[in-house]
Amino acid sequence: MESIPKKDRPEWKIILNPESKIVFNNFVLQMKITQAKKDIVKGKKTMEKAVDEIHALCQKYALAVKQDMEMIFNEKN
């Protein structure tokens, strides 16, 4: 996977669903997604804002999250 999938892919909302039990490999992704799910539950963040932030984080750490992106989006080059 050369680039991070677009924000309109439904998988972003699936991984941010507070009920989701998906586990990840990259540490900052693990921390950020956990906090984002808690913020969504508390009403401190909208799903759209959380998707924006996770997408930006994955773009920054594209290499480090490669394995997680392939797992979530089921895509490999």
């Binding site: 998906i22 586990v23 990840f24 540490f27 992704l29 693990q30 921390m31 956990t34």
Partner: peptide
Amino acid sequence: KSPLTTSYSGA
């Protein structure tokens, strides 16, 4: 001596 643990999406 062994800690409490919680999982943050796998961490």
